[in-house]
Design a protein around this nucleic acid. Structure first.
Lengths: 254, 254
DNA sequence: CGATTTCTTGATAGGGATCAAGGTCTGTGG
DNA sequence: CCACAGACCTTGATCCCTATCAAGAAATCG
């Protein structure tokens, strides 16, 4: 099992434009506009919070590089990770002055903050562009929905398997994973908090996955030994990760 | 415990405009435009599917009246309800030619189908309006996220309590619930499929809620006997159901 | 190289699933 | 108007998946 090198840049210079372009075609000037939005990048050390739940939030973030988690901590300390955030993702939406969730950097991250005020400026110039951004943004919803199915109706092994496959597919889409592996500083605790399991049990699940040559967690790397096997175990159908808008909806507009 | 009458219409003539207006101010002409979109309403009998997972889908639906569920059935028959759909909700987005989920009418529903093609026309005329719609639409994400916390980190009683409170709040927002009760054809099976529990166990949870005068399922009606009590049990914080965009983001645009 | 953090293993317990059946209600048709 | 069927609720018994508790390795880090 080799940990082959990735052919994609670790730092995406135009994550937002690239992301949107995955869903909807962008005109050159639109892409350029998106780039200007990301002018002042901010770097977040690993282990630091980008957003704290309950605190005021007047900007959104485009993730340029690095991996983070969006999560929620309950009164009694239980934590639920809502999603793993990867380059190209947009965080901080959902309206409201106060953040509903926290966001933590798992690796060093680079983000481009966009104050709501600036968004308005862009909107004024190119409302159709905003619509495109929002539309691409909305595709994320299916990821959350699938996670719901996970937590509600799948067993622990299925959940872990499904999660590993989902991350493989998502990271492949942005060039951060090869055929069967990807770099990610996952701990079993993180996985347990994402999947609603206990750390102990996640550990036992991994023992099984390992013994069946399905998946391994080595170093800071997820290596999938048997992609079809893991896929089958997870009942994984990647459709939900490749949303498209029929007829290139925006292109037909004059 | 009285089941007071509702002061809101059962059938909302402008669900989409009303919905968007809850989040973002609409100009009169925009509201009018939204109304024209909903011209040809379609009625769905209770128990019928509006959308079937895997089938092609080339339109979106604005729910005008009635309640439905969006759900997903796994290979082996397990079902997970993703969300309860109420008037004003928009269904069918998420892109892709094939529906990822099914949608079933729990009561007779009235929906306004909007072909993607028409959406394009409107977009062409008023791209900013589409942005508003999408933005309001995006607020739904926080509902899904909260459900995730539910399934991942809350006990059975907490889940049921939280769910009942969520529906109370959501239905109040559209005038379909009074202070402490609402009409909804919930079965224990539906609740179990929404919350990832077994029917048997949901039944036992309700026995407890009943005995503590917290909540009742009578007729086709949910009656909450002790709103603060149920709220506390659920650790319910309605913030996530009232998202706002700071500074009336769209209004400042010339 | 001491100190966290993370992983692993073992033992025990419990929340909730599953299985099985009976009861109740509702609508439908004869 | 009654009888029946199907949907829904209830109850009881049992089991098992996964959580908890406890504590020792191993790895990572400053």
């Amino acid at each position: 099992m080799r940990a082959s090198s990735l052919n994609a840049p670790a730092h995406d210079a135009m994550p937002l434009a690239n992301r949107v372009a995955r869903f909807i075609r962008l005109a050159p000037d639109e892409a350029a506009l998106l780039r200007t939005l990301q002018s002042d990048a901010r770097t977040i050390q690993r282990g630091r919070k980008l957003v704290a739940q309950g605190k005021a939030l007047d900007e959104i973030f485009i993730i340029t590089a690095g991996i983070g988690i969006r999560y929620r901590v309950l009164n009694d300390g239980r934590r639920q990770i809502i999603r793993f955030v990867v380059p190209g993702d947009i965080e901080g939406f959902g309206g409201s002055g106060n953040a509903l969730f926290s966001m933590l950097a798992l690796t060093e991250m680079v983000v481009a903050p966009i104050p709501y005020a600036n968004m308005m400026r862009v909107l004024q110039a190119k409302p159709r562009l905003l619509a495109k951004v929002l539309m691409s943004f909305y595709c994320d919803v299916s990821i959350d929905a699938e996670r719901l199915v996970d937590l509600g109706r799948r067993s622990a092994v299925e959940r872990v398997a499904h999660f590993l496959m989902e991350m493989l597919t998502r990271l492949q889409a942005i060039g951060l994973a090869d055929d069967h592996s990807y770099q990610l500083p996952l701990t079993q605790e993180l996985i347990s908090d994402a999947l609603g399991l206990s750390v102990t049990h996640v550990n036992r699940v991994f023992q099984r996955l390992r013994s069946e040559n399905l998946a391994f967690l080595v170093d800071q790397r997820v290596v999938i030994g048997d992609v079809p096997g893991l896929s089958a175990l997870a009942d994984f159908d990647p459709t939900y990760l490749q949303p498209r808008f029929p007829g290139e909806i925006f292109d037909k507009v004059a």
